[in-house]
Computed example of a mutant assay.
Amino acid sequence: MTATLMDGQTLSRKLLDETAERAAAFERTQGRRPCLATVLVGDDPASHTYVRMKVNRCAAVGIESRRVDLPASVGTEELVGVLRELSADPAVDGILLQHPVPAHIDERAAFDAIPADKDVDGVTGASFAAMAFGERGFVSATPAGIMRLLDAYDVPLRGRRAVVVGRSAILGKPVGMLLLARDATVTYCHSRTVDLASHVAEADVVVAAAGVPELVRGEWIKPGAVVVDAGYNPGNVGDVEFAGAADRASLITPVPGGVGPMTIAALLSQTVDAAELHG
């Protein structure tokens, strides 16, 4: 069996086109563009690349981008103050704090300084609670993109066994909650899981989000399973051993070109959602 690639590039372009149409309609009716403020702390090259990519995508779809760069030396209190200023600005619809922040900063305190109605990246405790309880709110951007991919390829979830490898607050945990809400039977696995291979082998859907290159081996994949690789490691390597997994899976995301483009598209779509909420 050779798996079909889940093309995040093409699907994200469709979502970005829809977002651009909505942004233009918002500007016509409200006399302003939707606005996303991005806060970047420090000089991490990968973070700068991600932020630059998001700024460029904003421009392409008609979203105003406000970028705030802070030195690595900034403390939690000062960062929280910046986020609260942006929160109080009625011209700002969405706020993105680029992850990760330097180790001396209390990242959770910083995230939770963002109000739920501007948390378009879905990183606050309030957003997670709303998502877990099926209430209105913004979903973490990468999990939102993953669910759009699964839906675009008509992946059945009700009653299916889903294994999430990884338990981060902005990826592993929320994507498991979203799968659970769709009536999948969800197992979380992580660095302390005993016999990871046996859990993966039972999965109809595997979401790899551990940040460990090729942690999930191809021979572990159940024949016909759907494999979503949300990892990205140096050398364009995901968290799944791609060649071996592609020989057994029915659908698989490439790295790059799978989950990554969907993350940015979901973020910008939710920014327009926030603008429409604010009016």
Rank of each mutant, 00 (worst) to 15 (best):
E78M: 01
E78D: 09
L79G: 03
L79I: 05
L83S: 00
L83Q: 00
R84N: 09
R84H: 09
R84A: 04
L86Q: 03
S87C: 00
S87A: 15
D89H: 14
P90N: 05
P90D: 11
P90T: 08
A91H: 14
A91S: 14
V92Q: 12
D93H: 15
D93Y: 12
G94R: 07
G94V: 04
I95Q: 09
I95R: 10
L96T: 12
L97P: 12
L97Y: 15
L97S: 13
L97R: 14
Q98C: 08
Q98G: 08
H99A: 13
H99Q: 15
P100W: 15
P100D: 13
P100L: 12
V101P: 05
V101Q: 03
P102M: 08
P102F: 13
A103Y: 12
H104N: 12
I105W: 10
I105P: 09
D106C: 04
D106R: 08
E107S: 14
R108D: 13
A109W: 14
A109I: 10
A109Q: 14
A109Y: 13
A110T: 10
A110D: 06
A110Y: 11
A110N: 07
F111A: 09
D112Q: 02
A113D: 01
I114P: 02
P115R: 02
A116Q: 04
A116W: 00
D117A: 00
D117M: 00
D117S: 05
D117G: 00
D117H: 12
K118F: 08
K118T: 04
K118G: 01
D119S: 04
D119Q: 08
V120N: 03
D121H: 12
G122I: 12
G125F: 01
G125M: 04
G125P: 01
G125Y: 02
A126G: 01
A126F: 07
A126L: 09
S127E: 05
S127G: 08
S127K: 05
S127H: 10
S127T: 06
A129L: 06
A130R: 15
M131N: 07
M131T: 15
M131G: 03
A132T: 10
F133V: 03
G134L: 09
G134W: 13
E135H: 14
R136S: 06
R136A: 13
G137K: 08
G137T: 06
G137A: 05
V139N: 01
V139G: 01
V139R: 11
V139I: 15
V139Q: 07
S140K: 10
A141T: 14
P143F: 13
P143Y: 12
A144P: 03
A144D: 13
A144Y: 11
A144Q: 13
